[in-house]
């Protein structure tokens, strides 16, 4: 009976494991890492709509589209992101940020990479792709509600310098106060209108990536602390080992 019990236990454990895996995959966000250990794969290279000469081959930049259901005449809060890792463009709006026309049920928000519609502001150049932010209801453009700001975040190409986010409203570029988000090449700003958005850099800044700076010094004392702790635990393990034949 014992081997049979063992087989039943093993089969039950495998079934339980595979069921848990299925549930976990359903519950986990799509960006969950496909591997569970080892070295994390780094960010993918920037995807240009119009790559500079000699740039590596990448898939084309993605677009993003989100359909918002209008409830009680208002558009809910939303976040729309392109699908790169990390996203190259992301837009977040609070509830009521878009002016939905009466009698529409849905508003479609899109972020689409486009060629820069006009030369960058004087003295600047566009860094990376320009993204067209549009909101449409039944094919009719929807505007941003008065006194409401949307947060837009764009990934930079890694060029040196501090990019500024610019909005092209169909007539001219306007520079927006820009902050760097938690990640090194992501920059965010608020906008209050639909239009084309891009990061711009001063023309005199090189297009090359930031040279890697000196690595932050490893804290030798803390390394020593952990190494000492580990050594002590190793000794404890050796001492506590079951006596041979015991």
């Amino acid at each position: 009976m014992a081997p049979l019990n063992g087989q039943i236990r093993s089969t039950a454990a495998l079934l339980c494991g595979v069921t848990l895996l299925g549930v976990a995959w359903l519950l986990s966000p799509p960006s969950s890492p496909p591997l569970y250990d080892g070295l994390i794969l780094g960010d993918e290279p920037y995807r240009y709509l119009n790559p500079p000469a000699g740039y590596r081959t990448t898939p084309p930049p993605s677009s993003a589209r989100l359909i918002l259901t209008v409830r009680h005449g208002g558009v809910p809060s939303f976040t729309v992101s392109t699908s790169e890792t990390p996203p190259q463009a992301q837009l977040t709006g609070p509830a009521g940020a878009l002016r939905a026309p009466v009698h529409v049920n849905t508003v479609t928000v899109t972020l689409t990479p486009v060629l820069a519609p006009a030369p960058a502001p004087a003295g600047d150049r566009v860094d990376g792709n320009t993204y067209r932010f549009q909101a449409l209801a039944a094919g009719i453009p929807v505007g941003v509600a008065p006194a409401v700001s949307l947060i837009v975040a764009l990934r930079g190409t890694g060029a040196s310098g501090q990019p500024t986010l610019a909005l092209f409203d169909g007539h001219a570029w306007s520079l927006r106060p820009t902050v760097q988000t938690g990640t090194p090449d992501d920059y965010a700003a608020t906008i209050a209108a639909t239009g084309d958005i891009a990061l711009v850099l001063p023309l005199n800044v090189s297009a090359h990536s930031n040279p890697p700076g000196p690595s932050p010094a490893v804290d030798v004392e803390v390394v020593g602390l952990f190494a000492g702790l580990l050594a002590a635990l190793l000794v404890l393990l050796r001492i506590g080992r079951r006596p041979e034949g015991g």
Partner: peptide, 13 residues
């Protein structure tokens, strides 16, 4: 959540 489930799967193996 995912890593917990993977841990159970590896333990089952």
């Amino acid at each position: 959540i995912l890593d917990l489930a993977v841990g159970v799967w590896l333990g089952a193996l």
